[in-house]
Design a protein around this nucleic acid. Sequence first.
DNA 1: TGCCAGGCCGGGT
DNA 2: ACCCGGCATGGC
Length: 221
Amino acid sequence: MSRSAAAIREMYDALLSRFGPQHWWPGQTPAEIMIGAILTQNTNWRNVERAIANLRARGLLDLARLHETPVDVLAELIRPAGYYNIKARRLMNLVDHICSRYDCDLDAFFGKSLHALREELLSITGIGPETADSIALYAAGKPTFVVDAYTARILRRHFLIDETADYEQIKELFESALPADVPLYNEYHALLVACGKDYCRPRALCENCPLNPFDHDGSIR
DNA sequence: TGCCAGGCCGGGT
DNA sequence: ACCCGGCATGGC
């Protein structure tokens, strides 16, 4: 048993005690969650909420409706989320995939193994590992751990991974330390984001980090 | 006022 | 197999 695996389990309890349940993902339907997962790429969630509100007001939190929308119209609607041209294209890539191959039926799209779904998502241009895992976990309800920039930074600063650890290695650390449980993966990722927003920014940190005694040295990495 | 935000792609080496 | 510039708005 690695020291990191034990720390991963202890850290969950520490985060839950400090921050409480996060009730993620902040979106009501699988379609809305998928859309949010693309819109939030390297973007503040507050800006994403504006974009989603625009889509909701037009009834476009719906794959079939979205599929009929011109990509330049979509781009204007999601403008507040930033990178709006490229994100409009990425959204349409996903919607085109689901509507052309699964008749816009999300249950049909999700009705396969986690591995198969993950690979299929990754084959779509604009969906990388974090977005694929967010969709698989929060929209499809499959047990895959989501790794984001906060997760990597928090683990680095607590010496639980080395500098060069990549996405798959970090994901594997969590999944080998924890049971494959959807509510647990859901809550853990959300707690890491909550902690990261408050304490583990790129250069403002980390004095009141609640993860002591996991022994970070306050250095900026 | 810069710095930052729940990444990912494509071209160059 | 890496490395890096580009993508863009809005809040603090």
